[in-house]
Amino acid sequence: MEKLISILFIYILVDNFVLQRFFGICPFLGVSRKMETAMGMGMAVVFVITISTLVTWLIHYQILVPLELEFLQLVTFILVIAGMVQLVETFLRKASPTLYQGLGIYLPLITTNCAVLAVALLAVRQGFTLLESVIFGIAASLGFWMALVIMSGIRERLELARVPAPLRGTAITLITAGILSLAFMGFRGMLTL
């Protein structure tokens, strides 16, 4: 139980997936312009990561390990993730067309969001149990969501600021992310596994 709680806090605050570990930078830079899309993207990522971690963990330990097919890990994991993303896309198109419009091209891009594959791979590499893996997935994706929402809040204000021409666009966003990451360094060492 203690381990589960520390996994939760470590991957949300101490070892934040975006700001400390650099997973999922592309969507972090791409969809953090508006708070609304950031919320939607964050939710979609939480959903995809949690389910895909559950499925990939089961596939690894129930199918690949008994058959000694571990070298197929990467191929199977990425296919499962691509399938999951397709599922979420179909679901959202029916359930919430406005959110589907808002997420636009970024929804299929969750497949190439390295945070998703990273969680699946790290859960196996660090030898987490099934429950720990799921908690790890939830924590990592909540951390991603939080970073995305904080960033979109800052960027909405940045729109109104006068930024020097060469820094406009991605450059200033990266520097902002750097300062945000600096702030999160304050959590370092608070908890360890």
Partner: peptide
């Protein structure tokens, strides 16, 4: 060498290349 420095260094490099390309 820290994550924060990576973001800042890349941001500044990007600004520099923007200037050069311009």
């Amino acid at each position: 060498a820290q994550p924060a420095g990576a973001f800042i260094a890349l941001g500044l490099l990007l600004a520099l290349t923007n200037m050069i390309f311009k």
